[in-house]
């Protein structure tokens, strides 16, 4: 079940969830989700642990098929959408002796055919992405030896290197200290503004969402609430949601 707040109108939908039910075989977690995410918007997917954030993200990225319904993308000539996916840095195995440059280079692998060497212009573009993410100084450092915030900048550079249509950030501040979290979100907001990139941020941090996101998909108690940040995260509305749950 989902509730879209009436005031919210999307002028140019880019991602549309159409009667989408997600979950695992025989166990739907969220059902009948119907909403549209606007092109160039900054949307946060908010929810507590176990609320279905990860499942929704997996379904969006095509890692897991929906139980029913569709995820549609408005791309010209139905060209497959390119995701700039930023995982939690702690999820990546530190055993791999990869430099920051090696990690960002992976962003170009989607455009280079198997068996081919990454061309020089792609390598040049990788350096540009590192520069854009202010991660140039980490290029020759071992990725596993960087701090949480530095790793996330490298991973954002990698996402930019995919030349993405959508930037998808999966709890990028997990394991990052408060100061670095603030700097990182400022940086993500800046990239979103400058590149007009449709951005999806998965988080459980209400304050971060309030400060940076334009729209919110709030997964709460099996319901999907969707609206602008100001209307959905107003104190009155939050109280209403929690009272609804208690009753």
């Amino acid at each position: 079940m989902n509730i879209s707040l009436s005031k919210h109108v999307c002028s140019e939908p880019f991602i549309t969830f159409d009667n989408l039910s997600i979950g695992y075989i025989g166990q739907p977690i969220l059902s009948d989700i119907s909403l549209s995410i606007c092109r160039t918007s900054f949307t946060a997917i908010l929810g507590a642990n176990g609320s279905g954030k990860s499942t929704l993200l997996k379904t969006l990225l095509g890692l897991q098929p929906p139980i029913s319904g569709y995820v549609r993308f408005s791309t010209p000539d139905n060209v497959p959408v390119v995701f700039g996916y930023v995982p939690q840095a702690v999820r990546l195995d530190p055993l791999y002796p990869l430099t920051g440059f090696d990690v960002v280079l992976m962003g170009a692998y989607g455009r280079v055919k198997p068996g081919r060497v990454v061309p020089r212009e792609e390598r040049f573009f990788i350096k540009e992405c590192l520069r854009a993410a202010m991660a140039e100084e980490f290029a020759q450092k071992k990725f596993s030896e960087l701090s949480g915030g530095q790793k996330q900048r490298v991973l954002i550079a990698r996402a930019l290197a995919t030349r993405p249509d959508v930037l998808v950030l999966d709890e990028p501040t997990a394991g990052v200290d408060a100061q670095a979290t603030h700097a990182l979100l400022e940086f993500i907001s800046q990239i979103h503004r400058e590149r007009k990139l449709t951005t999806l941020l998965v988080t459980h941090d209400l304050e971060l969402v309030r400060k940076h996101a334009q729209h919110v998909i709030w997964l709460h108690g099996g319901k999907v609430l969707y609206g602008t940040t100001s209307e959905l995260l107003s104190p009155e509305h939050i109280r209403e949601i929690f009272e609804m749950e208690i009753s």
Partner: peptide, 21 residues
């Protein structure tokens, strides 16, 4: 020949899938 693909799927499987591998 396939060093980059084998490394990518070993290191970050989810990212590899988002790239269509």
């Amino acid at each position: 020949l396939f060093r980059k693909e084998l490394l990518l799927v070993s290191y970050d499987r989810v990212f590899a899938i988002t790239l269509g591998k």
